[in-house]
């Protein structure tokens, strides 16, 4: 049994721990949990921004979702964006990482070069790509014309605007994922690859059967991080297309922004935000169920 001073010591140790946790708890509560609760509350009301008026609506906002074509479109765009961007970016990142995981000269240079896009602020990157994609004078169209192919209006063409944003996102994400995967690759003992090489196992087979399983915890991490980042895509859309043309690039976060701050309909914006939260939660759970089990942790 713990008695007297020992008990006091233990209590005060726990007390100290709570005391030290308090600031971050307060912070989290103020800026995360309180807003979530508020948005759930708002989603059942009609809120007018800037005034204190608030009217109870019940499930009206949620019923509205079913018939709101733009909601479904922006949800579809978000899903499409995520499901193309993340797998592509991870594949590119993995191939880059494998290529850069060699002891050849100049590798430090290439690593920095591929990581560079990550360091550019997304708004700045967006501006640069607006220029690159520009229909008349943009370098990408010039290159296409030089190849004798027909020019594309990129961000002004409803068919190409979302793929164009996806392409630049892959460019931006790949370097980040590459760096994380490269660190994981370098943890794999070299002799595993040497043993396979001696056996004559091809580079592709080694990638599939040795490299990927051994970095699966990191791949899993990268997939989750990627999903968390990509469903929040807002800045590129805001800077590059404002959701256009014809809502071809309207994604959920942008639609939330439009409802909340352009149409001043906080109640409906909150409803959308809650749906987004549920959607992402579901997606992450699904990923965890599908991939979580297959992750192999080096049991050494």
């Amino acid at each position: 049994m713990v008695t007297g001073p020992a008990l006091r010591a233990r209590v005060s140790e726990a007390g100290l721990a709570y005391l030290l946790l308090l600031p971050s708890l307060v912070f989290l509560a103020t800026f995360t949990y309180w807003p979530i609760l508020r948005s759930i509350y708002f989603s059942f009301h009609d809120v007018v921004l800037g005034s204190n008026k608030i009217y109870f609506l019940g499930f009206e906002n949620y019923e509205r979702l079913w018939t709101d074509k733009l909601f479904w479109k922006s949800l579809g765009n978000t899903v499409f964006y995520t499901l193309v961007t993340i797998p592509c970016a991870i594949t590119v990142a993995l191939l880059l990482a494998v290529a850069l995981d060699s002891k050849l000269r100049g590798m430090t240079f290439y690593r920095s070069a591929f990581f560079y896009p990550v360091m550019i602020p997304s708004v700045a990157a967006g501006m640069v790509w607006v220029f690159l994609y520009a229909p008349g004078y943009g370098p990408i169209n010039s290159a296409i014309a030089a190849l004798g192919l027909p020019k594309v209006e990129w961000l002004y063409d409803a068919r190409w605007a979302l793929p164009a944003i996806i392409f630049m996102s892959i460019w931006k994400y790949a370097g980040y994922f590459m760096l994380i995967l490269l660190a994981a690759l370098q943890m794999i003992p070299a002799d595993l690859h040497e043993a396979a090489k001696l056996d004559g196992v091809s580079a592709i087979d080694r990638l599939i059967h040795i490299t990927v399983p051994l970095i699966s915890p990191t791949l899993y991490f990268v997939i989750i991080i990627g999903l968390l980042h990509s469903y929040q895509i807002f800045d590129y859309v805001y800077v590059m297309t404002q959701g256009g043309p014809a809502d071809a690039t309207n994604v959920l976060t942008f639609y939330i922004y439009q409802n909340g701050f352009q149409y001043q309909d906080i109640g409906y914006a909150s409803t959308l935000a809650n749906v987004l939260l549920l959607f992402v939660g579901g997606l992450i759970t699904l990923v965890a169920l599908v991939f979580g089990r297959r992750v192999h942790y080096l049991g050494r």
Partner: peptide, 17 residues
């Protein structure tokens, strides 16, 4: 290496974990 018809046993064993 694979054209030499040799097998090697490593100090670390190098088993696929």
């Amino acid at each position: 290496p694979q054209k030499r018809d040799i097998a090697m046993v490593f100090q670390s064993y190098a088993l696929y974990p």
